[in-house]
C-alpha cells in the first residue's frame, strides 16, 4: 500500500489442476510473481485454488495441516505481497475443512473455514468436509477484512456479522460452476453473483473482492467473472470472460469512510434489536410442536 491510502489488489482468476497440489503450488508462485510485478499489495486466489474443486474422495489426499512444511511453503508466497488462497485443511482430530487462508509477510494471519457447505443439486460438500463454526474479521495491513467462501455469501447473516465487526473489505474466494442458459448475455449464476456481491458492498458499505475460478472439471465450467466492488456498490474492475486473468484494481481505502458518512447504514444498525428478535424467533421455533 502506498502512503496515500490506496491499495492495489489483484485477483488471480485461475484454472487449478484437480487434485495436483504440487503443480498448483508452482502455478501459485508464478501468479504471485506476476502480481508482484504489477505492484499489487494483495493477491486473492479462488476457493480451493491449491487443489481444484470437485475433489470427492481426493479430499483427504489433498489436505494439509496448519503446522506443516506445506503450510510454510504457502506462507513463503507472501513475502512480497499479501496472499489469500484456498486449501483443504486437516485438523489434528482429522476433520477436513474447505478453508481460505490469509498470509501476510511470510506468516499465516487468518484462516476462515467455510461454514455453509452446499450439498444439493450438483454439490456434495458435506459428504467430504466438516463445516466451519465462525465468522471472524481480522486486521490486515490495509484495514479490517473478513473472508467468506463461495456459498457462505448466499447466507445474508454471514456478511452481516462481518459488517458489524466493522470490516473495510470482504474477500470472497469462489469456485462457482456456471449454469442457467437463457437468452441473456451471461449465465444465470453470473447474474446472481453480481447481484449478491454488489448488494453486499452497497448495503454494508464495504469493499467486496470476489475471485472466481475458470476451467472445467468433469464437464462443469467455472465462469470466472471476478470483480472488485466499491463500498457504494459500483464495480471498480471486472473480468467478464471465463479465461485465466489477473484482475487489477486500485482501491481508495478512504472511500469506506466517505460512503459511511453519506450513507450511515452501519451507524444506524440496531444490533441489540436484531439479537433480541433473533432470540425470540429461535425460542418460538424451538417451542413449536412438530
Amino acid at each position: 500500500m502506498s502512503d496515500n491510502g490506496r491499495l492495489s489488489v489483484a485477483l488471480a482468476q485461475i484454472d487449478p489442476a484437480l487434485g495436483d497440489r504440487g503443480r498448483n503450488l508452482e502455478r501459485h508462485r508464478q501468479w504471485v510473481e506476476q502480481a508482484a510485478e504489477t505492484g499489487a499489495s494483495l493477491l486473492v486466489f479462488p476457493e480451493l485454488s491449491l487443489t481444484g474443486y470437485f475433489l470427492k474422495d481426493l479430499v483427504p489426499d489433498s489436505a494439509i495441516q496448519l503446522d506443516s512444511k506445506e503450510m510454510r511453503d504457502l506462507a513463503a508466497l507472501s513475502t512480497k505481497l499479501d496472499v489469500v488462497l484456498g486449501a483443504v485443511i486437516e485438523s489434528p482430530d482429522h476433520r477436513y475443512f474447505n478453508a481460505s487462508l490469509y498470509f501476510s509477510r511470510g506468516e499465516l494471519l487468518h484462516v476462515h473455514r467455510k461454514v455453509y457447505l452446499p450439498t444439493y443439486g450438483m454439490f456434495d460438500e458435506q459428504r467430504y468436509f466438516a463445516p466451519g463454526d465462525r465468522f471472524r474479521s481480522f486486521a490486515t495491513p490495509f484495514g479490517r477484512a473478513g473472508m467468506l467462501v463461495c456459498e457462505d455469501i448466499w447466507h445474508l447473516s454471514s456478511a452481516y456479522i462481518l459488517s458489524l465487526e466493522g470490516v473495510d473489505m470482504i474477500i470472497c474466494p469462489s469456485s462457482s460452476p456456471g449454469r442457467g442458459i437463457t437468452t441473456d448475455e451471461r449465465l444465470g449464476t453470473a447474474e446472481s453473483y453480481a447481484l449478491v456481491c454488489r448488494t453486499y458492498a452497497q448495503f454494508l458499505t464495504t469493499f467486496f473482492l470476489y475471485c472466481n475460478r475458470v476451467g472445467f472439471e468433469d464437464g462443469a465450467n467455472f465462469w470466472g467473472g471476478s470483480m472488485v466492488i466499491g463500498p457504494n456498490g459500483d464495480i471498480i474492475a471486472q473480468h467478464q470472460d471465463a479465461d485465466e486473468a489477473l484482475v487489477l484494481a486500485t482501491l481508495d481505502l478512504a472511500d469506506v469512510r466517505r460512503e459511511r458518512l453519506a450513507n450511515p447504514l452501519l451507524r444506524d444498525e440496531r444490533l441489540e434489536l436484531t439479537i433480541n428478535e433473533l432470540r425470540r424467533v429461535w425460542h418460538e421455533r424451538t417451542r413449536k410442536p412438530y
Partner: peptide, 10 residues
C-alpha cells in the same frame, strides 16, 4: 463409496 472425479489429477 469409491468416488473420484473423472478429471482426477488433470
Amino acid at each position: 463409496d469409491f468416488r473420484y472425479p473423472r478429471d482426477w489429477g488433470r
